[in-house]
Amino acid sequence: MNDESGQKYPAKPDDFPEMEAWERDMADVLKKSEPPPLAPEKMEALLATLRPMVAARREESTPNLSKTAGRMDFGEFIRLVRGQASLLERPFWMVMGLIMAGNLALLASNILQPLITTLFLALPLVGGISIVYSLHGSRGGMWEIEQASPAGLQRIFASRLTLMFVLQLLLALPVLVSYGAQAGVLVLARMVLAWLAPTVALSGMILFLFSYWGEWPSVGITVLVWGSLILFGASRAGFIGFAEMVLARIVFNPLLPLLAVLGLAAGLAFGALGLRRLASGRSSWS
């Protein structure tokens, strides 16, 4: 091996047999040279310079604990909602995207417009199923981390349901706006009720069933119930063009406001019972 001067020097350990002896020899000799001492005042002055920098590191990395234990402000809640969105997988977003695209395409197309009312009638079911889906990320380890967190299960569920509700509203919006623009504010308000009440009712029901029996039974029963109602309405309407007929019957039914209130109340009550059961950990799922 050559070093920088170009002279050849052996590089393997055994090729410096005398080095060990030289090191011992030189160790005592070299120790005779001492540096001028560093004055204690200078050491202390240097430490004094460094202490504030260390303190700054301490401050930048300590969370504000009083904040984590008190009321949650709006900004924090939004961050929590965004966090819930990150738990939803790509297939979910694709399905949402497809439904939205379907909505818009059908609205734009005159020929297929009747289909849009069919889609609209299915939206409450989509809402309920998406709520069950949103809970499936919280299992096992993640569920325990959520339980042990300062955010708390109640706020986590609230943020999750908020996210789902906003997404469902976005899905329903094209139809609501389109029909409302054509038929006026009163019809729009009735259509909103016709969408909101079944959505909340089905969501509450599915949550309640989920807290007892888990995913598939809750989804299955809810699909059965809503499907049966639609089919019943369809049979009364003669099946052909049934969707528009069913929707018209719902929207222009004089009992709609009362039924909507009942549906909302039932949905909220069952939903709350289901959430409480989930939060207490007594459910079949946790």
Binding site: P63, K67, T68, M72, E76, G83, S149, P150, A151, I156
Partner: peptide, 10 residues
């Protein structure tokens, strides 16, 4: 970590 940050209210 981002999700847990929101859970920990940090």
């Amino acid at each position: 970590l981002s999700y847990v940050t929101s859970l920990k209210r940090l």
